[in-house]
Structures are given as C-alpha cells and as structure tokens.
Design a protein around this nucleic acid. Structure first.
Length: 921
RNA sequence: ACCCGGGUGGUGGAAUCGGUAGACACGCAGGACUUAAAAUCCUGUGGCUUUGCGGCUGUACGGGUUCAAGUCCCGUCCCGGGUACCA
C-alpha cells in the first residue's frame, strides 16, 4: 500500500463517522476483489497456491488499514475468491444464462417466457415450428437471446508462451513478458449481452450523481449513434450492399462505396479483371497486425473491385472499393463514401482520383472535407426528389422518410460497445457452473453451487490455449458423462455485485435477502479511482439492472453518488544511462563518444577501462547535449531526497547496488569512476538528477508507505493531511514536509487542552458570545463542507477555529467538547482520547453532532468594501438595518472617499446589501 | 484528431449568486527562549514602487459583456485524463 491508496478510504471514513454522529445507521464495509492475474502470475512463479498468497496479502493489507483507524464493519468483509461468495457469483451467472432481453418490455425476463413465445408461433431461424426442432436447434435459437451465451470470438494467442493474453498483456503487438509475437485466434467463449442494455445504461446516467467526465467516458464507450441503414442495389448482381450512415442527408454526395477487406461480398462481386488486385490487397490486410493497422493511419490503401452499385436516387453507377479504413466490426462493414463531407473519404478520393461532388451550399471542398453539421444542402436532387436548401437536420429526416417509403432503408441505431467477453483461460477465477453433453450446454442446478475450484498441480497454462483446469481429467469428466467448462470467469464477475453482499454477507440461502436490500437501498457514496470508469462500473450497472428486472432487488442503479478520487503523485528521481551499442563502448569513453567528451570538456580525453561499464550522465549535460538525450534512457533511482535537491551522491548509488550502478559517471565537474575522479575540478561527487512528479508506483521507486508516515506522525495527522492536500477529485503531489502543518495543529490542540503533567486545562465556566460564535460557525461550515465532499476546507476551518479560540483565550469545556465531536471523523484517535480525559465515559463514536445555533451564524453589522470605479479603497462598518440613504451619506462624507472623488462627479452609487458599495465617478 | 477536466504566490491550495484575490498551511526571512541545537512562540512574506502613509500591477495569453470578472462570453496556448481509421 502506498499513500495514494487510502485517500478514498479516508474520505469515506470521514463521511461514515460524520453520518453516524448525525444519527444515521451507516453501512461502511471493506472487502477484497481477490481473483485475478497478479495472484495467478505469482503462483506460476513461486508454485504457491494463489489462495494462500492472496490470504497473506489480505492479512497484510488489513493490518495496514487498521493502522489508519478506519471504522469498517469487519463482520461484513467479503472476499470474491471465497466459495461462500462465488457461489452467488455463479448463481447470478446462471440467472443471466436463463434470461433474455425482451425488447417489448425493455427488460430481462426468464428464458421460459421466450420459449412460450416460440411455442405460440414466434419465428425462429430454422423456419420450422418450435416443437419440431431438435434440442440442438432449440438451444441454438435460445443462444441468440440469452444474456450469457457462448460464441466464437478472437483472442490474443501467444504460441511461444502457450497461453491466451489479456489486452493489457499485449504491448505493441507482442507479449509484454518476453516480447513474443501474438496472433488473433478464433475461440469459443462466453459473453454477456450487455449491448441489449446500451440504452438503459445511457438513460440511467441521468439518474445518478457521477462526475461529468465519468458520464462522458461511459457515453463514449457505449458510443450510440443514430443513423440509417441503406440498401444499395448492386449493378449486375442480385445482392445488395447494406451500409450504415449517420448522415443520410449526404446521400447525393456519394461518389464511391467502400467494403471492409473481410466483408463477405468482396469475393462474390469482384470482377474478373480485378480479381488479382483485390486478392493481393485482401492478403496484404490480413498480414498486417492490429498494431500496424492502428499506427499507420495516414497511409491510404485500397483496391477497386470492378463492381458497381446503383445510386437509389440518381440511378448512376457508383464504384465499389475495398479498403482497410473500413472495419468489419463496426456498423455493417460497408460505407457509402461522401468525400465532400468526411475527411477519410476525402483523402481516399484524392488518392484514387475519384470525383468529389459538393453538396454543401457556399463551401469549398476541393482542399478538405466539410465536416460541420451546419449550413444548407445543395446539388441534391433528381427528377422526383430534392433536399436542396434544407438544413442538415431537415434533410436527414426527409431522406430517411423517403428511404423507408422506397423500402430500401430504415432508421438504425448503432453502438460502439460490444458484448462483454466473459471467459478467461485461467486458473484463478470463478469456475463456470456449466458442462457440456454432446456439445449442448448444460447448466448446473442451483442446489449444486458452489462449483469449487479444484486443486491443480501446475498453475501454468495448459499450452493448447485452455485453462489449467483442463489438465485435471477427474474434474473435466463428470460422473454423468458430461464435460466441464474449463474456462473461468473474468475479474469483473465478482466485483459486479459485491455491494449487495455487504448488505447480507453471511446469508447461505440468498445472495442478499430482498428485505435487506430494500432497507439499505443503493450505495449512497462510492469513492473510487477513474480507472474503473468503463469496465467495472458499466458491468456492475448492467448486473444491477438484470437483478432488478428479475425482481431480486428494487433499484436499477447500484451507485447513487460516485466520486473519483484523484491520484496522489510523488517526486521520482531519474538518472540517464547512455545506450551505446556493445561495439562502440569498448574500453574507453573516448572510443565511445569522442565528440561528446570533446563537446563537454573541450578537449580529447582518453580513459582506459579494465572492462565494459555502463555510462551515466548528469542531468545538466543531458539538457545541453541533444545527442546525449536521444541516445540515453531514463533510470529511476531509489536513493536521495527528491524533495530537497536534485543531486545524488554517486558513492551512495554504488553502495546501494554495485551490480546496477557500477559504471562511469560523467558530470560537468568531470568523470568519476571507481569511486574517484579521473578528471576532476575538485568539487564533490554528486550527480545531478531529474525530478519528475509522477503517479506513485513501485516501478518508479517513488512510493511512500503509509505505515512509515503513521509511525512518525500518527494516524490522525496522516488522515488529516491526506484530506488537507486538496480537493478529493484532483490529482495532487505528496510532500512529506507539508504534513508538519496538520501535525502541529494536532499537537497544539492537545497542548491547549492538557498540561504537561496531564492536568486538564478546560474549565466549566459558561462560554462567551465570541467563542460560541466561532464554534457555531465552524460547526456549520464543517457540516456543509462534508456534505459537498470538500474535506480540505474542513481541515482549514479547524485550524482557523483553534487559532481564534486561542486568541480569545477560550478554554470552555462546553466549546471544546463540540470541537472534539466535529474533529472526530478526521482525527478519531486524538478526539477519543481527549473526550475521555475531559471526563466522558462513553465513546465519542456514539456522540451526537452538536446542534447549530442559528443566531450565531449571522452578524448584525457588515464591513462594506467601499470601491470607486470597481477598486476597493476603504472599508466601512454599517449595521445590517442601516438604510441605503444613510450609508450613502456616510460614504460620501468619508475622508478617504472624499480624496478619491474630489473634483469629479459621482455618476452612480451602487449599493448591494451586505456585499459592496461602488461609486462610479 | 475528437471528447472531457484543468491552468490562481516559491509550494499545496482558498474565494457560496459576478462583489475586499491569495483564507488555511508548507517553505523562506527576521526575532524571542537556549551555553548551543531541536522543539515552541512572535513578526513579515504575490510582483514593482515608496523612508513611511500610500500608489501601480496581478488569477496561462488576447479580446468582449458589466458599475464590478479568478468566476460569464469569444478566440489562442499549455497541462492532465479518455477515446480513436466508429462511417
């Protein structure tokens, strides 16, 4: 754990404790999403069972959490890898499998409802009555509708590692580990039909309190676009080309069609003359990796098929091309190209010499496409139809209606989001409660759950693309002759519903009793990182909707309010290592880089070395010499204090790790090698480094362990400082020095209440008006600020409050007890201890947030800033009930004001009650 | 390229509806206490200018609206995040 992790936990703990003080019944749990790759990877490396290492890690993490004083209800702890938990993950999966999305009711229903519909005569893909279909055929049909279903899909297959890789294990087209080639391989996989929920996931966003950026990310991910599908009749061929377009208004601007290279029509329609060209091109596309297709976006490639479609309005022949810029996976894999309105089509037209008809009024499209959606349509008519002079919106509508009239197009909505892949060829995940009988899916019955993860000899992948489970014949081959599914579920399975389990963590008979979820309802506050924006958050929203549709819970959004905590960044320290090839860096720095040494020291210098060493450069040299920078790589170092200076002792580096840091150091002062200067100008042995503020991370060696902070400053100072750093959503740098401020505050608070000898310094005298005023105001501000998650300003207010009470010499118990209660969510240990020392016997956790006396929130006077032409010149105190006229008289008579308006006329007197007075002269 | 955030002293940040910019801290400087140091306390601290009072200027940059702009509008630049041949 590093200091970035607890930020959100502290914020939610403050809210939990505060709500408790206000009398709420607060559910504040913690749990562990413990299945997944890191544990499995570790198991492969060490041979230890992931369950063992996971438990160990959880224990360690809990220890660290407890060290910070969180008020978690540990009785509600959940672990997604616990069979008592994943029993219900499997149960929900079976519910998904046994449900379909009914478009008529717009919700999930039992698959039995669908079967009934088929029995009543609903059409199926085989064109036969339902009861005449074989079981395989029936299942095939139902598979098209189940919310969890099996389908063929491409995975990242790495032959060298003999395993399937997750997307983030593939970097630049090769495996992250070892850099082996990765290919796309078709495999049968489980999917969740989340696309059916696309619209409800979008609509649901309107009902929840998430940040704009997060909502935006989810919207982009779902990628809803409204448009039309249009049939273009092929010339001299019975088939149609079906395209999807968001701009039906540009239909008269179409000058060519493009099919994706994988499009099934390509082979059928290509003319004889073009056969070789197209085949070559398609092969070329196949040979190109995902990476190449992504990175080389400027290169325009394509081939003419020799075939044409007929324009539905003008009847003109339009050529059909194949090009890789059209993707098979989006829309229909075919587009109508409008070069005047789309920059990619424009570039393609220029390259292949295709005409660029202009359909926009008063716009020049010869150089680039006009992609704005404003202006009017022109040149868009035939004998029997015209949209000339219409706006984009009007034209869209009119074309769409006509297409529907002609029965060659319909309104269509397309989504970027795909169904979610739900299979992993891994060990450390939930087993599927699924087996196969003659290739037909058989779901385990609910009573048989959980299907527990069996012991396995090796956690290594099986080598043939299957999970390690496939290597256990006694598990795979069931007693009834069925074959078990050997894939496991992905990380987001368990995390999609854990908030429900917190409400009823021990229940052996239900994932969560309905009464319990009815009582607790949605999660009121969920604080988490933005990295889950489109994965976990979307999936859990979908699961919630399904469980709601099926009647298991009565809300259909899991999280009412979601706050994304910002990253905490920290200074990392970097040195530079020269990337000389082995050839050139033999034995001498002179041989290696004569030019550079010459540049730096203005002389040729030769140093014989007894072996080859890495060469490290001081940062200031890197900044001055471009050749050095481009030939050097950055290396994070673990020593020195980046808070204080940008230099590091070279000897210290040596001592830290001879293996890593023994080498030749080149600085402005000379060359340092084997702990002495070879060429020096007599200055200390320091190397200047580069300091970067970056996300805290092990690899950057800039993490700060909260245990260390707690040890030297205490948990309360640590908690308060994390809150004091700045707004919770913002990313901000950690500076250990800054913690002194809150640490001093806590000490000052203590010392003000308790004397050296332990005597309580508070008295029982009644508090004066001034003290009551400040404490009531801060009580009010703290309440307001916590409610808007502005924790940093709460901490400031506490400091202001103490400063003020000290200045007043206020030591009334009455005032300070209120202060302690207000402070307790932030600094629970200090508050609790002082609470007892000042004579209370119950815990401060059970205290009640003090009621606020409204009369102290308002002053009877206001100190008006008096400005002349908008610039404040003086301040004048007036009672709140003073009339504007009286104030005007007094202001005009004031000597400072007199000085500024002397010889000028006052044109206007602006008076805003309890805000400002402004004179315009 | 597109879509979201954001840009305020040396640093983290504050500023409710457009109404005293820089609260509260860190750091720094000076002082007190101490044989000394640490700790603690006091004073000062955006920049320029002035002996002082004060004046000018100032919220990335350029415009605009307004009696009044960190805040609203238009344009530009920079930083962070997300997405991407998405038709």
């Amino acid at each position: 754990m590093h200091v970035g992790h607890p930020l959100g936990y502290i914020a939610s703990d403050v809210v939990a404790r505060f709500k408790r003080l206000q009398g709420f019944n607060v559910l504040h749990p913690m749990g562990f999403d413990a299945f997944g790759l890191p544990a499995e990877q570790y198991a492969i490396e060490t041979g230890q069972h992931p369950a063992v290492t996971t438990d160990k890690n959880i224990e360690r993490y809990k220890e660290q959490l407890k060290n910070i004083g969180f008020s978690y209800d540990w009785d509600r702890e959940v672990k997604t890898c616990d069979p008592n938990y994943y029993k219900w993950t499997q149960w929900i999966f079976l519910k998904l499998y046994d449900s379909w999305f009914n478009p008529k009711t717009n919700k999930a229903e039992s698959i039995d409802n669908l079967i009934t519909l088929y029995e009543k005569g609903k059409k199926n893909q085989f064109g036969k009555p339902w009861n005449e279909l074989t079981e395989t055929e029936q299942q095939k049909e139902l598979t098209q509708h189940r919310l969890a279903y099996k389908d063929e899909s491409y995975i990242n297959w790495c032959e060298a590692l003999g395993t399937v890789l997750a997307n983030d294990e593939v970097v630049n087209g090769v495996s992250e580990r070892g850099g082996h080639p990765v290919e796309r391989k078709l495999m049968s996989q489980w999917f969740l039909r989340i696309t059916k929920y696309a619209d409800r996931l979008l609509e649901g966003l309107e009902t929840v309190d998430f940040s704009d950026s997060l909502k935006e990310m989810q919207k982009n991910w779902i990628g809803r676009s409204e448009g039309a599908s249009v049939n273009f009749k092929l010339a001299e061929h019975p088939d149609n080309v079906v395209v999807f377009t968001t701009r039906p208004d540009t239909i008269f601007g179409v000058s060519f069609m493009v099919l994706a290279p994988e499009h099934p029509l390509v082979a059928q329609i290509t003319s004889n003359e073009q056969k070789t060209t197209v085949a070559d091109y398609v092969n070329y596309c196949k040979s190109r990796s995902e990476l190449e297709r992504k990175s080389e976006t400027k290169e325009i490639t394509g081939a003419f098929t020799g075939a044409y479609v007929q324009h539905p309005f003008t009847g003109k022949n339009i050529p059909i091309y194949v090009a890789e810029y059209v993707l098979m996976g989006y829309g229909t894999g075919a587009i109508m190209a409008v070069p005047c309105g789309d920059s990619r089509d424009h570039a393609f037209a220029l390259k292949f010499g295709i005409s660029i008809p202009n359909i926009f009024e008063g716009v020049d499209v010869s150089e680039k496409a006009y992609e704005e959606k404003t202006g009017k349509i022109a040149n868009s008519s035939c004998d029997w139809f015209s949209i000339d002079g219409l706006t984009v919106q009007e034209a869209k509508q009119k074309v769409l209606e006509k297409l529907e009239d002609l029965e060659i197009g319909t309104k269509q909505i397309n989504y970027r989001m795909r169904d979610a892949g739900f299979s992993r060829q891994r060990y450390w995940g939930e087993p599927f409660p699924i087996s196969y009988k003659n290739e037909i899916v058989v779901a385990d019955s609910l009573e048989n759950l959980p299907i527990t993860l069996p012991e396995v000899k090796s956690y290594k992948p099986s080598g043939d693309g299957k999970s390690p489970l496939s290597t256990i014949p006694e598990w795979v081959n069931m007693s009834n002759g069925n074959i078990r599914e050997t894939d496991t579920m992905p990380g987001y399975a368990g995390s999609s519903w854990y908030y429900l389990r917190y409400m009823d963590p021990q229940n052996p008979d239900a994932f969560c009793e309905k009464q319990k979820s009815d009582y607790w309802q949605q999660v009121d506050l969920y604080i988490g990182g933005a990295e889950h924006a489109v994965g976990h958050l979307l999936y859990s929203r979908m699961w919630c909707k399904v469980l709601h549709d099926l009647g298991y819970i009565n809300f259909d959004e899991p999280y009412k309010k979601l706050v994304n905590q910002g990253m905490i960044t920290g200074p990392s320290q970097i040195i530079w290592r020269y990337n000389g090839t082995s050839d050139e860096s033999k034995h001498s720095i002179w041989n290696t880089m004569p030019k550079i040494v010459n540049d730096i020291f203005n002389e040729r210098y030769f140093i014989p070395f007894d072996k080859m060493y890495p060469i490290f450069f001081s940062s200031e040299l890197i900044e001055k010499h471009e050749t050095l920078r481009s030939n050097s790589s950055q290396l994070y170092i673990p020593i020195g204090n980046p808070d204080e200076n940008k230099i590091v002792d070279i000897n210290e580096l040596y001592n830290y790790s001879i293996e890593k840091f023994e080498g030749v150091y080149v600085t402005e002062d000379g060359i340092f090698y084997k702990q002495r200067w070879i060429r020096n100008v007599g200055t200390p042995k320091f190397l200047s480094t580069l300091i970067e503020n970056e996300k805290l991370s092990k690899s950057k060696l800039n993490t700060i362990n909260p245990d260390d902070i707690v040890r030297s400053y205490g948990a309360d100072a640590f908690r308060m400082y994390e809150m004091f750093l700045g707004p919770i959503e913002q990313s901000k740098p950690w500076n250990t020095k800054g913690i002194d401020g809150v640490s001093r505050f806590i000490k000052r608070f203590w010392d003000y209440c308790i004397d050296y000898d332990g005597t309580v310094l508070l008295n029982n005298e009644p508090a004066n008006e001034a003290s009551l005023k400040i404490i009531n105001r801060i009580l009010n501000k703290t309440k307001e600020d916590i409610e808007k998650y502005s924790f940093n300003t709460c901490v400031s207010s506490f400091m202001i409050c103490l400063n003020e009470l000290q200045a007043q010499k206020c030591r009334n118990r009455e005032v300070f007890e209120k202060f302690l209660i207000m402070l307790s969510p932030f600094a629970p240990h200090t508050a609790e201890e002082l609470w007892h020392r000042t004579g209370n016997t119950s815990t401060i956790i059970d205290a009640v947030y003090p009621s606020i006396n409204e009369k102290y929130l308002k002053d009877s006077t206001f100190n008006y800033p008096i400005s002349i032409n908008g610039k404040t010149r003086t301040l004048m105190l007036f009672p709140n009930d003073a009339s504007e006229n009286d104030i005007k008289k007094a202001v005009l008579a004031d000597t400072t004001v007199q000085k500024w308006i002397e010889g000028k006329t006052v044109k206007k007197f602006i008076f805003v009650k309890e805000r400002i007075v402004n004179l315009v002269v």
